[in-house]
Design a binder for these strands. Structure first.
Lengths: 208, 208
DNA sequence: CTATACGATGAACAGATCGTCATTTTATGT
DNA sequence: ACATAAAATGACGATCTGTTCATCGTATAG
């Protein structure tokens, strides 16, 4: 960090960049990559076409900047959520809670994030995958380690591979967020993380 | 069904239509809606531009035909999987098994199906959602009824809302399919449905 | 074999969008 | 106040792509 050693001009440029990105995020998340033109972004951000291209090489570059920045933010927040608790169960609870909080604070990018991480994206030729998928994979591994540790400490039963459990918890939380996104009133993301965690933690089958 | 009451001409037209659809499916699933041109589809299907437009009003119409047809097929197969077994557990096992089988037989459309049902799609303005989402919602309700019935018959514990359980099972199977899609060798879709179902059925927590 | 109807064809058109760059505007220094 | 440098601007060119339609080929009927 070089902190305050930024000239007024540099600070202004940073601010302009931010203006452009937030305008673009809103448009992309509403209409999708291909249904938004650079003219539209320029107009919404209140800059001229040429100025946009001073900051971003081209449309793809602009989009990539958004996705990578946001995905990194998500992944960092979630990784931190796993670290700042001690017990395995508490880690999982915190993961579910933080994921809800972070996503609900960034509604407009959730759809873009889902589009890129869930493999249904055809927006960018290639390469974007790599950085994001890698970070996403790392996060899943950290989550898997929590399950692994729980099993080793005999707090968890080994009902499935740790990695599978991690993928499952992640996909269930995504599903809840997806429901909330479609009908926030009808399907609120639960305040109590156990509403989600019980699905994994408690056994469905009644043992005789 | 009017069965064999089709003229030679009509049969040929049906066959041509199928040729066009399969060519389009391959292209769309590889490159996405916006990165495939009608010229490309015509060339791959070995028909002239004009002929395509004899069969489909426009590009959107062609895409919709594919998605709706395929989604209906998936949903029917899954609904049937729930009906053709009696016990609740057997229904769930069959659901997981059939879902794997059907999806793995239709690899090239999975990505398109995910794109449309998981809300990350910006391909079509609107309206396509409605028919598919409706069927998808109905399927989830049928799945939820299985959980509901299990609870009433005291075979399942009520660890969560039936609808939430349905959504969870669906999203976990999707996650497994997604893993398989990315690295088939490393993450095969399990032959034994219990590998997936145990995540719900068995309790993770070791009770004291 | 010829005439006619029907279907297939693909070059041409119109519209849209990306990205550039000559020009204008603003900031900086003397 | 003036000159010079830097930055912002948006009209324009090049390209791409969805869609049409006049033309051509082929099958059917007389």
């Amino acid at each position: 960090m070089q902190g305050a050693t930024l000239s007024r001009r540099e600070r202004e440029k940073l601010w302009q960049r931010r203006e452009m990105l937030t305008a673009a995020i809103k448009l992309f998340s509403k209409k999708g990559y291909h249904n938004v033109s650079m003219h539209e972004i320029a107009k919404k951000a209140e800059f001229a076409m040429g100025t946009l291209y001073k900051f971003f090489k081209n449309k793809e570059d602009l989009y990539e900047s958004i996705i990578i920045e946001q995905a990194d933010m998500f992944h960092e927040a979630l990784a931190k959520a796993l670290e700042e608790e001690n017990g395995e169960i508490e880690k999982l609870q915190n993961y579910v809670k933080v994921k809800g909080a972070v996503f609900m604070d960034n509604v407009s990018v959730i759809r873009l994030y889902f589009a890129e991480t869930r493999g249904a994206s055809f927006n960018i030729k290639a390469g974007l995958d790599k950085e994001i998928r890698e970070n996403y994979g790392l996060l899943l591994q950290k989550l898997a380690q929590v399950f692994e540790a729980g099993v080793q400490k005999k707090r968890f039963q080994k009902i499935a591979e740790p990695y599978h459990l991690a993928v499952s918890l992640d996909s269930i939380t995504n599903a809840f967020l997806h429901l909330w996104l479609e009908a926030p009133e009808q399907h609120p993301y639960p305040d109590d993380p156990d509403v989600i965690l019980n699905i994994l933690c408690k056994g469905l089958i009644v043992e005789p």
